[in-house]
């Protein structure tokens, strides 16, 4: 596996990284954990003239509380998220999801910013950040802006980031009282990526009905997306097994289903519904035990 020749820069500030990106006319690629970029380089699927390593920029990693949620630096590794006491306590969905990504070596290197900016349609963390009501902060030559996760993923490996922007942090909502979450995944035995992955965050009202449901699905279409049909079918209902199963039937509404060697469209659609049902059931179960 031999990449074509490229230049390598390791700036120490975000501003410098943005300048390098701009100078390359947006042709450069940002290197964070490298677990998607390096295979693409080695397969010559990506042939950027310049690779900008943001791993040495201080302050780009770490987890902190901010604005009723958690701010997670872009270069925070999946392992750090999995192990973070703050994440486990305030947004356990992300910690649970991180544990599903690749294997330990991958999680030790792979970053949350990298996976979101890459926009792989079968990534795990994309669904979790969607379900967690998250957003990302990006920085470009004209300053900073925030993109809600709902607007971030446009298509297969395509996000709302401009070519001269760097994703600097992720923000997710804290899971509040009477709220439970779960990430359920049916993995491709070869790649470990999701054939169907569903992240659920469910808040129950005092009477046990669903006050709010945020469900996101990955692996089934060209991008991770909110399963709004499922959410609507749960809203205000008592979350019994029958309701959940009926809601899960909406799992791939509006999704342009992928069919491949591992799961044709009919099987993938079926799996999505099963995985959605299981994800919601677990989230509801957890919400019910949280005061």
């Amino acid at each position: 596996m031999f990449p074509v020749e490229f230049e390598y820069e390791a700036p120490t500030t975000v501003e410098e990284a943005i300048r390098l990106l701009a100078e390359s006319g947006g042709e450069a690629k940002i290197l964070a954990g490298g677990h998607s970029l390096l295979p693409m380089l080695k397969l010559r699927l990506a042939q950027p003239p310049l690779v900008i390593d943001i791993g040495r920029i201080a302050g780009l990693s770490g987890v902190s509380e901010q604005d009723g949620g958690l701010r997670i630096g872009a270069t925070t590794t999946e392992t750090a998220i999995q192990d973070s006491e703050l994440v486990q306590r305030l947004c356990p969905l992300l910690s649970e999801t991180a544990a599903h990504i690749g294997d330990q070596q991958v999680r030790n290197r792979g970053t949350i910013g990298g996976t979101l900016a890459h926009g792989d349609p079968a990534a795990d963390m994309t669904a979790a950040v969607l379900a967690a009501g998250g957003s990302v902060t990006v920085q470009g030559p004209n300053g900073e802006r925030t993109i809600p996760a709902d607007d971030l993923f446009l298509d297969m490996m395509t996000t709302a980031l401009e070519p001269d922007e760097v994703l600097t942090s992720v923000w997710v909502q804290t899971e509040g009282p009477r709220t439970g979450s779960a990430y359920e995944k049916f993995a491709n035995a070869a790649s470990g990526y999701a054939i169907a992955g569903v992240a659920s965050v469910i808040t129950l009202a005092a009477d046990g009905t669903v006050a709010r449901a945020r469900i996101a699905i990955t692996g089934v279409g060209s991008k991770a997306t909110r399963a709004s049909g499922v959410e609507a079918a749960l809203q205000g209902k008592r979350a019994d097994d029958q309701t959940i199963a009926a809601a899960a039937e909406h799992a791939v509404e509006g999704v342009d289903l992928i069919g491949d060697l591992h799961a044709d469209e009919s099987y993938r659609e079926h799996l999505a519904k099963v995985i959605a049902r299981r994800s919601i059931q677990r989230a509801v179960g957890r919400a019910a035990t949280k005061s």
Binding site: N188, A189, A190, S191, L261, H262
Partner: peptide, 8 residues
């Protein structure tokens, strides 16, 4: 199944 992405 040309790589370990598709060959399990």
């Amino acid at each position: 199944t040309g790589s370990m992405i598709d060959y399990a």
